[in-house]
Design a binder for these strands. Structure first.
Lengths: 343, 343
DNA sequence: CTGTTAGCGCCTTCAA
DNA sequence: TTGAAGGCGCTAACAG
C-alpha cells in the first residue's frame, strides 16, 4: 500500500498543459477547449486521479465539513436525526463529523476544539449542554467563541442569549396530539410520568400538559404528574409512586416523557398485574414499535429536523433573511398501548 | 461571525520571532529557549490561537482521520462498535468520519471516493459488501484501489483474497455458549431460526450449530433450522413455519440469528398462546434488555471490536509483525427468556 | 481559451 | 537556539 499519490501537476505535464488547465477541467467552471478537456479527462481516468481535498480546502478556505455534537449515537433519538442530516448533507457535498460527547462536558469541550481546528464550516448541537435550563457560564463562553467563527444550529435545545439557529420539535403540539387522541378514546383522567424538572424538554411537556388539561377542563391531580427520570427504571418507579397515592383517584391513561419510561411502566404494571392504564410514549423509537404491547408514541419529525439543520448552516452566509428559529410539528404513531383500557 | 482567523505568522510577528519558532513551540519537538517559549505561549493564549489542522495535514501528509463505513448507525449493533472505536480513537488523536451507506452499494462507492479524497489514513468497514459470501467483482475492485492507498480493517466480515486486516466476533463460540447454557438448563431439542443462507454471519452460526449438536449428540431435525431473515417480521414467520411442521417433534428451545428475530418469535407465540419454547437471542442490543420477557442474548465484544480495529489501523505502518486477523470471544448475557420452560 | 504567478497556513530542512 | 526558504497540492486572479 501507500503509493506516491499523483497530483494535478503529473496530469498537467503528461497532457502538455498547465496545472491551471487541469484544475479548470476538474472544476468545470471556466471554458476549456473540447480537445484538451478530453485529453485531461483521459489521463485522470487512466491514473484514477482524485483531487486532494485537503489541499483544496486550504486554498478555498472551505472544508465542506460540518461538526455534529451529541451525547450518544447509540440512542435512537439522536441517531435518527443524525442519519437524516448525513444523507441530506451528502447530496449537498458536505461531510459530517460525528462527535459523541458521552454526556461529558470535558469531551464536549475537547470536540469543540478539534472541530474548530479542523476548520468545519459549522456545528450542530443536539442534547448535552444546550438542554439545561440553568446554563453553565464556562460552557456558554466556549460556545460564544465558536459562534465567533462559524454558524451554529441547535436541535431541540436552546440557550438564551446565544445568537444561533435552532430547529425544534413542537413538543407542546406533541402533547396536544396525545391528549386529543386519548380524549377521543374517552379518557378524562390523564397522567404524565417521567422527566426531570429543569430540563427543557421536560418543562415544555409538563407546561403543555397542564395548559391543555385546563383548557379542556379535564381533571388534574398533582399526584398524576410524576417527575422521575428518562430510563426504564424510573418508569417503574413512577408507577410505584402512583400506586401509593389515593387509589380512588387514579388516572386512566398515562403519557410518558419518552418511550423508555413507558416500557418501565409497562413492566411494573405487568409485575403488579395492573391493567387499568392506557399508555402513550414519546420519541417513537424502535423500542416503541418492537415492544409488546406496541407503544403508541409521538414521533419527532426526524427527517425534517436533520435536513433543516443542514440547510440553515449551508445558507447561513447567504441569506440572513431566513428565520433563525424553526419549529416543526411532530405526529402521532398510533399503536396498541393507547387502547388497552376500553372506556 | 467569521472573523479573519489568526495564523502562526501573526503570533510570530507580535512575539518578534520567526514562524518556525512558533511552530516549534506548538509542536514541542525542538528546543526553544524558555523565554521565547513563554512569550509565544502567552500570545497564543491571548488570541485564543488554534493551529489550522487542514494546513498541517497538507504539510505533514497526515490527516489523523479514519473513515468508518457501515450500513446504518441507527442499528445498535453497529452504533455500539462505532462509539467504542470513536472514544478510543479520540485518545489517540484520531477523528472518525462516519459513513452510513444505507445498504446501498452506490452510496458505499461514493463514500469510498470521498474518504479517499479527504485523505483519511485508513478505513474501517462493517456490514455491507464485506458480508456477502458471493462477492461482486466491481465492489471488490473498488476496495482493491483503496488498499493501494491505505490500510483497511473489516469488522465481522471478510472477503477472500483481499489483503486487509480483520477483527471478528467468534460467532461459533457464541453459539457454543448458547448451547452450553441451554443444555445446562436441561434442553435437548434446540432449534435455530432466522438469517439468510449466503450471508457470512448466518452461515457461520448455522455451521457451528450443526457441528455442536452433532458433537453433543443432540437431536437434529431439518425443520428446526429455519432461514427467514433478520427482522421482527421474519421472526414471526419462522414460528409460523415451525408450527406447521410435525407437532410431535418440536424443539424446546430456540436460538435466534439476532434479537429482532426473537422479538418477532415472542410476539407470534404470544398471539398463538404458545408457551413451549425458551429463547436466546444474539447481539445483545437494547431491545433484548428492554423486551418483556427480557431476552438472554449473546453479546458481541463491542468495545474490543472497536478498539482493536483502531489499533490495527494506527499501527499498520509500523509493525507488520502484528497479526492481521483477530478473533474475539463473545459472552452470554443471561436473562429471563432462556428460562421460560422448566424441563 | 490557456499559462504564469502568488498564495492558503504550516512544517522542516539547512545554515547560521 | 533561531531564521530563511522551500514546498505540501490546489485555486484564483491576471495576463496574454
Amino acid at each position: 500500500m501507500k503509493q506516491k499519490s499523483i497530483t494535478i501537476y503529473d496530469i498537467a505535464k503528461e497532457a502538455g498543459v498547465s496545472s491551471a488547465t487541469v484544475s479548470r477541467v476538474i472544476a468545470g467552471n471556466y471554458p476549456v477547449s473540447e480537445k484538451t478537456r478530453k485529453k485531461v479527462l483521459d489521463l485522470i481516468d487512466k491514473y484514477d486521479y482524485h483531487p486532494n481535498a485537503v489541499a483544496r480546502s486550504l486554498t478555498k478556505k472551505e472544508t465542506k465539513m460540518i461538526g455534529f455534537v451529541l451525547p450518544d449515537i447509540t440512542n435512537p433519538f439522536f441517531s435518527q436525526v443524525f442519519i437524516e442530516a448525513e444523507k441530506y448533507a451528502l447530496t449537498k457535498g458536505y461531510t459530517l463529523i460525528l462527535c459523541n460527547s458521552m454526556n461529558s462536558s470535558e469531551m464536549e469541550s475537547k470536540y469543540l476544539r478539534i472541530l474548530s481546528e479542523r476548520q468545519v464550516e459549522g456545528m450542530i448541537f443536539m442534547g448535552g449542554r444546550i438542554n439545561k435550563t440553568f446554563t453553565d457560564v464556562v460552557e456558554v463562553n466556549e460556545l460564544l467563541h465558536v459562534l465567533d467563527k462559524m454558524p451554529v444550529v441547535m436541535i431541540n435545545g436552546k440557550i438564551d442569549g446565544l445568537d444561533c439557529y435552532s430547529v425544534r420539535t413542537d413538543e407542546a403540539r406533541g402533547i396536544e396530539l396525545v391528549i386529543d387522541h386519548l380524549v377521543s378514546l374517552g379518557h378524562e383522567k390523564i397522567g404524565l410520568i417521567g422527566g426531570v424538572k429543569g430540563v427543557t424538554t421536560t418543562d415544555i411537556k409538563v407546561e403543555a400538559y397542564k395548559n391543555l388539561l385546563s383548557k379542556y377542563r379535564l381533571t388534574f391531580r398533582d399526584s398524576w404528574q410524576i417527575y422521575s427520570g428518562f430510563d426504564v427504571q424510573t418508569g417503574k418507579e413512577a408507577i410505584n409512586q402512583l400506586m401509593e397515592s389515593d387509589k380512588e383517584e387514579l388516572p386512566t391513561a398515562l403519557i410518558g416523557i419518552n418511550d423508555l419510561v413507558i416500557i418501565g411502566a409497562l413492566k411494573a404494571c405487568r409485575q403488579k398485574r395492573i391493567k387499568q392504564f392506557s399508555f402513550v410514549g414519546f420519541d417513537n423509537t424502535d423500542l416503541a414499535k418492537n415492544s409488546s404491547p406496541e407503544i403508541t408514541s409521538v414521533s419527532h419529525p426526524y427527517s425534517e429536523l436533520g435536513k433543516k439543520a443542514i440547510d440553515l448552516l449551508i445558507n447561513a452566509s447567504k441569506a440572513n433573511s431566513q428565520r433563525k428559529d424553526i419549529l416543526i410539528a411532530p405526529y402521532l404513531e398510533v399503536r396498541e398501548s393507547s387502547g388497552l383500557t376500553k372506556l
